[in-house]
Design a protein around this nucleic acid. Structure first.
Length: 526
RNA sequence: GGAAGUGUAGCUCAGUUGGUUAGAGCAUUCGACUUUUAAUCGAAUGGCCCUGGGUUCGAGUCCCAGCACUUCCA
């Protein structure tokens, strides 16, 4: 990759057709002129977005001194050139602005240069005319390359085609780019390169910045929705002595001074529940968790989860909250409740659909999920390994295979078989059914919620059976005695909710891969 | 872990049945141009065809192994 020849700057015969060498050469030329190619602070600047808003201040001043309002530039019938001949002679006069950003495109036509300048709020055209900026500045402008960061002071106006443009009066080089930008239409398409060089991806590929700005808005929105409802954000430990709260393989690490093994957290749950015992009645944490497992378009080893606990609530309360969290986030990023994801329409208009695990199972397979013989027989036909497995586990594998992928959603799958939900309270009228829901969108599990189990003795028992059922590979799972002791101090009945933030961002920004919504996903070393 | 695909200029991609000196667009350099907008026109420069082995008179192309990435599956 970009192994610039980095011709030692003094090299007497640089090959100027080599793009890297050409940039180095221009850098030297700039330095020779006594200009710092890495610039200085640039005060009083306006964002491109602000300049666009001030575009309405541009007026057409005739030679007679008459100040006319410009015609509607959006109008398709408008021939601005003609309009000017009809109303002229005269010229556009607008406010003076200072903008700074990256040169994305340049169209030199002899003694003038058009450039497209981009800051993180948008693009705006710059006009640099030799006569207008003077010989010296124009020579400097010719030393600018695509990708350079520059500052421009000039008046807002319109070109003959009506395009809002900053007519440069002063030019500032703020930082010279020594690497070569990607191809200007296709951009950088190699997924590996895009992630490895996220800076270039953000700077040059359309839509990338917007996705990550939307991510920030979604995260902020989730926090404010919860804060408004009296939830309290906390920060639990990321280094755990006992990995718990989920079934996943942890990353292991070591504390030198204590000479003690530690694992990175795989979930937030157990510490948040301890806080509920302590009296934090509405508590949440949004943060990174780490799972030492395979990669896929939906899995990165570190990802962002939010877990939310509400004392004296149950999974019904969490369903309503889930809808609020998602809908308010959509309100913040805009685009409406009917959205596109992977080419299909997803309608987030609340309330979301709800269906029980059993009815979805029966609809997809034609088999009563309670009929164990039929379930095992179907598993055989689907070539699902059944030996040594509990029928409920087998049934769940069928569910995952036959039902989950087809859940376009958003849909709450509710009331799971109790046997696959050890940390969940059972329904009062049916101990076989656990009060749990999962939210599915486009076949992807986005949220998971329970009416939390708060019976310490039952919790301990379930821990034991869970541990007994694990094979050697997973035997690093350990009984969390302190957690059970905490429950003995009495945890209120509560609803608990977990949402995969990365997946939520994927769905709301129409991103196919989790790696498109994580700034720096894990990569092999270069 | 399994299957399929991809790897060629700084970037995006062609490259026929194995056949002479590996092509295009963008970018870069030089020339023309003061209202362009993927600016245009003319010219030039730019290659470890992922790596290693093999088949062949001859390999970017076929075979084997490896590496990396992508997609699907587990």
């Amino acid at each position: 990759m970009a192994n610039s020849p980095s011709q030692s700057s003094g090299s007497s015969h640089p090959d100027l057709t080599d793009p890297h060498a050409a940039r180095r050469h221009k850098l030297e030329e700039i330095v020779k002129r006594g200009i710092d190619p890495y610039g200085q602070r640039f005060d009083d600047r306006q964002l491109v977005k602000e300049c666009r808003q001030r575009g309405s201040e541009v007026r057409f001043v005739t030679q007679a001194g008459e100040s006319l309002e410009l015609p509607d530039m959006e109008s398709p019938e408008l021939d601005y050139r003609q309009w000017k001949t009809d109303h002229g002679p005269g010229e556009e006069v607008g406010p003076t602005v200072r903008v700074a950003g990256r040169i994305m495109l340049a169209r030199p036509t002899g003694k003038l240069i058009f450039m497209n300048l981009r800051d993180w709020t948008g693009d705006i055209q710059i006009f640099v005319g030799k006569k207008q900026v003077g010989e010296e500045s124009f020579e400097l402008a010719k030393l600018f390359d695509l990708g350079d960061l520059i500052g421009i002071e000039g008046r807002l106006g319109r070109t003959n085609t009506g395009e809002l443009t900053v007519f440069a009066e002063k030019l500032f080089l703020l930082s010279k780019m020594l690497e070569v930008p990607p191809e200007k239409h296709a951009g950088m398409t190699n997924a590996d390169l895009r992630q490895r060089m996220r800076y270039a991806d953000l700077a040059f590929n359309d839509g990338v910045m917007q996705t990550f700005l939307d991510r920030t808005k979604i995260v902020k929105s989730v926090r404010s929705t919860l804060d408004e409802r009296g939830f309290c954000e906390v920060e639990g430990p990321t280094l755990h002595t006992i990995p718990g709260g989920a079934a996943a393989r942890p990353f292991e690490t070591h504390h030198n001074a204590l000479d003690m093994g530690l694992t990175m957290r795989i979930a937030l749950e157990l510490h948040l529940k301890r806080l509920m015992v302590g009296g934090m009645e509405r508590v949440y944490e949004m943060g990174r968790v780490y799972r030492n497992e395979g990669l896929s378009p939906r899995h990165n080893p570190e990802f962002t989860m939010i877990e939310i606990y509400q004392a004296y609530g149950d999974y019904e309360s969490m369903m309503e909250l889930t809808e609020r969290l998602i809908c308010e986030a959509i309100d913040k990023i805009g685009g409406g409740y009917k959205r596109q994801y992977n080419g299909q329409e997803v309608d987030f208009t609340p309330p979301f659909k709800r269906a029980t695990y059993a009815e979805l199972f029966e609809k997809a397979t034609g088999i009563d999920p309670a009929d164990q013989d039929a379930v095992m027989e179907l598993a055989g036909r689907l070539k699902i390994e059944t030996t040594g497995k509990h029928p409920d586990v087998v049934r769940n594998e069928i569910f995952e295979e036959k039902v989950e992928d087809s859940l376009d959603g958003p849909i709450f799958v509710i009331d799971y078989p109790a046997s696959i939900c050890p940390l969940t309270k059972r329904k009062r009228d049916n101990p076989e059914i656990a009060e749990r829901f999962e939210l599915f969108i486009c076949g992807m599990e986005l949220a998971n919620a329970y009416t939390e189990l708060n019976d310490p003795d039952l919790q301990e028992e379930l821990f034991q059976t869970q541990l007994a059922g694990l094979d050697d590979e997973d035997s690093m799972a350990k009984m969390d005695h302190d957690f059970v002791r905490a429950l003995r101090y009495a945890m209120p009945p509560a609803g608990g909710l977990g949402i995969g933030i990365d997946r939520l961002v994927m769905v709301l920004t129409n991103s196919k891969s989790i790696r498109d919504v994580i700034l720096f996903p894990i990569l092999r070393p270069e």
